[in-house]
Each structure stands twice: as structure tokens, then as C-alpha cells.
Simulated assay, not measured.
Amino acid sequence: MSQSRIAAGAASLLLAAACAFADPATAQPAPRTAATGYVALGDSYSSGVGAGDYLEDGRECKRSSRAYPVLWAEAHAPSSFSFAACNGAGAAEVLTEQLGHLNARTGLVTLTVGGSDSGFVGVIASCALGGGKGCLSAVSRSRARMDGTLTYDLDRLYTAIRERAPAAHVVVLGYPHLYRLRGGCSVGLPDTARAALNEGVDHLNAVIAKRAADHGFTFADVATAFAGHEICSSHPWLHGVDVLAITESYHPTAPGQSLGYLPVLAGVA
């Protein structure tokens, strides 16, 4: 037998042996289901309180068809869409009541959460009814909660989200400044109180952003998008204080959702 035939036979044997002993998972990768589903978690800023046109199945949570999660889903057609965000939800409620929508096929998760945990509902009431001094005291108490229980609750929530949706890109959106200082409001809170509210929002966003980064999530700041459209601006994207509809006070309008939150999410999702 010629040396060339011997070499060819040896090469064939080596190739056969390599195929026989190769790890099947390496030789033939198993097909993976694409993680393309979208789940929107969170509080009233994600459910769309203030935007109107509330969905029939979401009245208790005030889920709006004009909320940024619905608008993003309509524009991008994910393989599935679960709209779990609910008015008044804090980190504990999102953890216990909303994470059932997550699974291995979830490719995108969005949420806003932390405002309720920080006591901003009480801050709103204090600022609306208690004047400047009461507003400053309420903001101070709220900041203490942000640095305390909120940090712990966010860690628990973010850990659980990653466990339930291991392949998901998680986007945590922040909150906008509430007031345009030296704006067009001739009545209401003094600018010192308005500035304190904005500073409280900044502190809240900083706490949320730090926890999100520590868990490998994307934090999306919306303050720049809302700049020039705060309460007391000429074209506000937030509701001012309305004692007859206090729930919608300090919440984004429909343009706040479509022109404020949606472009920010689209830029990172």
C-alpha cells in the first residue's frame, strides 16, 4: 500500500474518532428559543396614571393605552407582551404580584419603582395641602426612606427579576423633575419647596441607578427628556396639583409618556 493511501486512511480514522468522542452539545448545538418577550413592571409611572384612556382590564391599576410600555410594544411587536405595572405598586408589590409574568423567554423588562416606597404620595399631599414648610419636611423624611428600606427592597426585587428572567435586558427608568423653577406658576408652592421636590427626585434616581448598576441593569434617566416640560413650564408634560384628582397629580400626561418616556426607552432597548 502506498504511503499516500496509508496517510489518507489514518486521517479518516482520526476524523471518525474525533466525531465519536466529541461532546454532542458541542458537535450539534441544541436550538435555543429566542428571548423576545416583553414584560412591563412597575408603578403608576409605568401603568400610565395621568395619561387617560385606561384599559378595560386595567382600571384598578389605571393601566393606560397611552403608557410608554404599550406604545413601545406597538412599535416593536415583541413575541409577547405582558403589561403588569400597577398604580401604587412599591418594590414589595412588584416582587410578590408582578413577577409571575417573567420567564426564560423574556427578552426585555422595563420598570419604574421607588416613588411609592419613598412615600411620595404623602409628600404630594403635604406639598399640596401643607404649604412650603410642610413640603420641605415631607421631602426630608422621604429621603431617609430612600437611603434605608428602599435600598434593601430594590436589591431583593432586582435579584428576583434576574432569577426569573435570566436572558432579559432589564431597563430601569427614572423619574423626571416635577417643577420648572422660576416658571410661569403665579400661585402654589414657593420655589424653595419646588426645588426641594426636584432634589428629592434626584436623590431617588441616584439610589435607583446605583442599585440597578450593581445588578447589571440599565438605568434610563428621563430628566433631560422632560427638561422644559415640567410643571410651571409653558408646555408641561406633568399634571400639576389637583386636589380633586390627587392620584393624577405629579404624573405624566399622554405627551409625557409618548414624548418623554418612550424615546428614552427606545434609545436603550
Rank of each mutant, 00 (worst) to 15 (best):
A8L: 15
G9W: 10
L13V: 14
A16S: 07
A18D: 05
D23Q: 07
D23P: 08
D23N: 14
P24F: 04
T26P: 00
A34I: 05
A35I: 04
A35C: 02
A35H: 02
Y38V: 00
V39R: 06
S46L: 04
G50S: 03
A51C: 09
G58N: 04
A67Y: 13
L71A: 14
L71D: 12
W72G: 04
P78N: 01
S79A: 15
S82A: 15
F83H: 06
A84C: 11
N87V: 06
N87F: 13
G88C: 08
G90W: 09
T96C: 02
E97Y: 12
R105I: 00
T112M: 05
T112Y: 02
G115Q: 12
G115C: 09
S118R: 00
G119N: 01
I124K: 13
A128F: 04
G130P: 08
K133C: 09
C135R: 10
L136M: 09
A138M: 10
R141N: 13
S142E: 04
L150S: 03
T151C: 02
R156F: 05
E163V: 15
R164K: 13
P166V: 01
A168M: 00
V170L: 01
Y175Q: 06
R180A: 14
G183Q: 05
G184N: 13
C185V: 03
C185A: 03
L189Q: 08
K210A: 11
A213N: 11
F217D: 03
V222C: 03
A225E: 02
F226W: 03
S233C: 07
P236F: 07
L238K: 10
G240T: 02
G240E: 02
D242M: 02
D242Q: 03
I246N: 07
S249V: 01
T253I: 12
A254Q: 14
G256V: 08
G260Y: 07
Y261H: 11
V264P: 10
